[in-house]
Write a protein that binds this DNA or RNA. Structure first.
Lengths: 229, 229
DNA sequence: GTCAGTTTCAAACAAATGTTTTAATGGTGA
DNA sequence: TCACCATTAAAACATTTGTTTGAAACTGAC
C-alpha cells in the first residue's frame, strides 16, 4: 500500500459506507478492506462515530467552502445587483456535480451524501446541520434577493425539491435502475440535464395556494398554471 | 390494546422504522412499543426481514394499484389519444401525496418509503424492484407516448429527478429543517407546490447534450435553454 | 546501540442483536 | 371435563458488534 493507515481507512470507509450504509458497515469490513488491524480505527479516530464524522467533514467543508467562494465571486461581479436565479442554481448544484465528476472518491462521496440527507441518526444530523448552516443562509439570502416576487415559503419548498432532485441525481443508481438502462457515465451531460430540470422547476408558474381554513375539503383541484397542457 | 398483536407490531414497526431507520430499530424496541413479547415477531412473521417486507408490501401494493387504476381511467377516457403530461404526473405523484395526507399511518409510511428508495440493503431493493416493475412500465409507456419529442433517455432522467423531489417532499422534514421554518401541515398545499415544480421541470427546454467523445475537456458550459435568464 | 514515542497486532471484553426453545396460557368444540 | 389448537411468555442461544488491553514492532534522535 502506498498511503498511510489513516488514509486507507478513510478511503475504505467512504467506499463501504456508500455500498452498505453507515450501520451495516462494520469496523471489521473497513479494516480488512484497508489492510489494517481492527484496533486501528479506534486508535486513529477514537470511535466509529468519530470516523463517520471525519469522512463527512473532510469533503463537506471543502464542498461548502467552494459554494461560498462561488457565490462571493458572483456577488462581487454583480456589484450589489440581484443575481440571476440560474447563476445561483448553477453555482450551488454545479459544485456538487463537479465534485462527483472530479474523481472516483468524489463520486463515491456524493452518492454517500445523497443517501445521508435522509439519515435518521441523530449525531449525523447534528453535524450535517452545523456544516450547512452558513452556506444555506448565504444562498437563501441570494435567492430571496433574486426572486423578490416569489413568496419565501414557496421558494423554500422549491429549494427543498431541488435538493431532492440533486440527491437522486448523484446517489441515484438504484432507484434509477428501476426505470431501465440509462447512461450514468457522463457527468457533464448529467449536469446539463439537471440544470435544465431545476431551472424549469424553480421558474415554474406560481401555484395558487388556498389557505387551509378556507378551502373546501373535497373541492376539485385547481390547475391555475400553464393552461396549455 | 384494541387490535391484535400482529397489527400492533406492524404499526409500531412502521413508526419506529421511520424514526430510527431499518437497522437501528431492534425487535426489542418494536415489541416493547407494541406491548408484545419479543418472540412475537418471529412467531407472526418468521424473521425481522420478513416483517420489514410485510410493512412495505402492505401499503406499497395498494399505492401502485391505485396508480395503475388512475392510469387506466385516464387512458380509457382518452380513447387511444396521448395523455397530457400533466395528467400523468398528477396521477403518479398525486396518489403518493394523497396517501401521505390520508392518515397518520399513511404519512408515516410515505416518509419511510422516501427514505428507503436509497436504502442499500439488498433484500429491500429486490422486493422494491418487484413491487414497482409493473407501474413503472405502464407510466414509462404513457409518458413516451405523451412526449414523443423528448428523447427517452432525457425523459428517464427527468422522471428520476421527479422521484427525488417527491422523496424529499414527503420524507423531507430533516433536510427541510435545515432551510428554516416551513409549514408542513397542509398536504393539499404541498401537492399543489410539488405539481407546479414537477411540471416546470418536466417541460423545461431540452438541453443540448454534446456527445462525450466530441466535447472539449474544459469547454465553458453552454446554456442553450431559456435565454431570457 | 539505546531509548522514547508512535504505530501495529492478536486476543479478549462486555453489550446487544436476531432467533430458538420450552413451557404456560387461554379459548373452543367434543 | 378433556383434548386440541393458537398464542403468549420467559429464558437461553449463538453471533456479531464496537471497544479495550497489553505486548510486540517499528521509527528516528542522541
Amino acid at each position: 500500500m502506498e498511503t498511510d493507515t489513516r488514509s486507507r481507512i478513510l478511503a475504505a470507509a467512504e467506499d463501504l459506507f456508500v455500498q452498505h450504509g453507515l450501520d451495516a458497515t462494520t469496523l471489521r469490513m473497513i479494516t480488512t478492506a484497508a489492510h489494517a488491524n481492527l484496533a486501528a480505527v479506534n486508535y486513529h479516530f477514537g470511535s466509529k462515530e468519530a470516523l463517520i464524522e471525519t469522512v463527512f467533514r473532510r469533503r463537506l467543508t471543502w464542498l461548502n467552502d467552494q459554494r461560498i467562494a462561488a457565490l462571493d465571486a458572483l456577488e462581487a461581479e454583480a456589484k450589489g445587483a440581484p443575481l440571476k436565479p440560474r447563476q445561483i442554481v448553477e453555482s450551488y448544484f454545479g459544485v456538487a456535480i463537479r465534485l462527483a465528476a472530479s474523481s472516483p472518491g468524489g463520486r463515491t462521496f456524493m452518492r454517500l451524501l445523497g443517501r445521508t440527507y435522509t439519515e435518521p441518526s441523530e449525531f449525523v444530523r447534528s453535524f450535517l446541520a452545523e456544516e450547512y448552516a452558513e452556506v444555506i443562509a448565504r444562498y437563501k439570502a441570494a435567492f430571496f434577493k433574486a426572486l423578490p416576487d416569489v413568496p419565501q415559503e414557496e421558494f423554500l419548498w422549491r429549494f427543498h425539491f431541488m435538493m431532492g432532485a440533486l440527491s437522486y441525481a448523484v446517489s441515484g443508481v438504484d432507484a434509477l435502475r428501476l426505470l431501465g438502462p440509462v447512461d450514468e457515465s457522463d457527468p457533464e451531460a448529467l449536469y446539463t440535464r439537471l440544470m435544465s430540470f431545476l431551472i424549469g422547476g424553480l421558474r415554474a408558474p406560481l401555484p395558487e395556494i388556498q389557505s387551509q381554513a378556507v378551502r373546501k375539503p373535497r373541492a376539485k383541484r385547481a390547475t391555475p398554471d400553464r393552461a396549455s397542457d
